[in-house]
Design a protein around this nucleic acid. Sequence first.
DNA 1: TAGAATACGTCAGCTTTGTTGACATTCCAA
DNA 2: TTGGAATGTCAACAAAGCTGACGTATTCTA
Lengths: 168, 168
Amino acid sequence: MAQSGQSTTGQSLLFLTDEQLRKGTEAMFFAYRGFTADPDRILSERGYGRAHHRAIHFIHGSPGTTVNNLLGILGVTKQSLNRVLRTLVEDGLVLNTVGTKDKRERHLYLTETGTTLERALSDAQRDRMRAAYRAAGPAAVAGFRQVLEAMMDEEMRHHYDALKDKAE
Amino acid sequence: MAQSGQSTTGQSLLFLTDEQLRKGTEAMFFAYRGFTADPDRILSERGYGRAHHRAIHFIHGSPGTTVNNLLGILGVTKQSLNRVLRTLVEDGLVLNTVGTKDKRERHLYLTETGTTLERALSDAQRDRMRAAYRAAGPAAVAGFRQVLEAMMDEEMRHHYDALKDKAE
DNA sequence: TAGAATACGTCAGCTTTGTTGACATTCCAA
DNA sequence: TTGGAATGTCAACAAAGCTGACGTATTCTA
């Protein structure tokens, strides 16, 4: 066992060895692969990639979102996003409507087919997360979220909080 | 606040709402971007990418490892790894020696230049992780690691454990 | 109301990093 | 000793990111 959780005061937690930090980075690396593995399988069956998954996920979470907003969340260029979005619209998974208030904007929605795929993807991903959560217990889950949130960039945390608030 | 950490018995943790799980996946997504952001900056200055970082990281952790072993850890094809390795050897960051016992194998080592870059990269990455760890506290860190480990594929956990044991 | 700014889409071309296929070398076992 | 398995290299291609330039429609502002 490592000497990380000794102090319950939270005061003397300053000895973070290189070893502990290295293990943390490797845990992130290996866990992220597991995190994406199950949806990746479903996606590749249908000729989609992780980029499509991300678009579908956030359109599902914020129906009617604009292209510009999605760009901020995903942190890619519009050319890159456009390529993905175009195939999703062509394949009938995403709907693209002209803005009501500002006609320059395009609002994005999942069609029924899109929603079905979203559910398949998130079910697969959540099964693994659910299993991990159960194995680790509620206290561990709280810590997991705390560390992840502390690891985000400022800008990313804004997007994260905005999405979080929406549901509460 | 969510209703996740209510029970201290760890018994009745069965109500994992879709909402909680969704937030977990988004936390992973946004945190992973932060996790890679700092090294990415250093790498792009020198014309390298994340693939180079991964190779350097694991060669540093297991000096003398073979190409085949590295393939198992990274989970890519040998052709893909080879391209990265070749540029690192050409640039004098990695040393490639013919196996002594089995001449088909190549043993990989970091040169002094390679070690210097490794240090710069891991310093940058660890600064952020250290800050996150401190902000979240030791109990949260323990939970963080627990959940990540539970999220890995079997095969990945084997690699992870092998690397972990090496240092203990 | 004219011109600047914004939102979106697209064309062209490049880079990184993954893929499959073909092939040389080396080792081992029948 | 020879044929198959293992290790690693070269070639060509695909996905998905990037920059830069440009067009169009719309909105904002001086």
